[in-house]
Amino acid sequence: MVLDGLAKYLLRRAADRAAVLFVALTLQFALLRVLPYYVLGIDPSFFFMNPNLTNEQRELIRRAFGLDEPLHVQFAKYVLALFTGNLGYSFYTRRPVMAELAERLPNTVILLGTSTLLTLLIGLTLGLLLAMKRGTRFDTTFIGVSVLINSFPTFYLGLLLLLVFGFYLKWFPLAGSVSRPPPSDPVLYIADYLWHMTLPLLTLVTAGVGGYALLSRNIFITQMGEDYIVTARAKGLDERTIMVKHVLRNVLPPVITIVALALPGIVSGAVITETVFSWYGVGRWLFEASTQFDYPVVQGVLFIEILLTVVSLYIADIVIAIVDPRVRLR
């Protein structure tokens, strides 16, 4: 019977998330294909920046990108293509978006994956510590420091680190993910890669930790102030048991949601950090494509991001449903 409720709930959630996905795709299609081409008159032939193009050539280019068919057909083809892994062809290089994405994905996933993991771990743990030490000098000092660092723009932080550690102290390299040329020995290669990754990782973690720490601190404080904690203490349970069996189980739903929302960022990258450190990743690519009006690329990457967000949230739904009985039995 419990499972039945769970299944029904999850089915409902799945339908919800799917609806969100569909709406997002439609919006994306409208904004990135209908608007520029049909409304603003910008199309792929345009950005060749060559006024010498004949109309004939322009037509050919339009046809190559499927812009000559009726809108609803285009939309259907577009959605079908997306789900079969065909993300279209870049206007700029005319190569498949998927291929170009694959080139840049490893760099982004490694950097952002590590930084997200560290940021979440450090941030959430720090928040817990702060909640436990609420009101002490440690708490107030750290909040001040967090807010301060959180308000640094990422590029400023990145350039600062680059200037101090890369230029003045010369401890770290100034650009790229490997030395030019990279060492051939695989172990040395990994070491070289990690050495290059240190500063961008530091930038991302420093910039992100404060926010998560404050967030999780609030979540913990809220839970720790709840009545059932007083009951638990009255029952004679020790602090550790209270923390683990009572507080933690109750903070899981919001924390899981936070984690789920942080996950899609691993693929979509961090454009500013990638630019400052010349890190060959998806974030920077998305930014360049946007300024170059390379719509298929923007569409493709956004689609991946939307898909990941929806899937992450759905997984969060599942986990929360298992953990929190209120959600599935009500």
């Binding site: 230029f167 790229g176 030019r180 630019t275």
Partner: peptide, 20 residues
Amino acid sequence: ILMPVILDYDARLMAFKKGD
């Protein structure tokens, strides 16, 4: 001829001044 890709202008100038 070694042509490193350095996207950010500040980073490029830093690399130049550093001797890279």
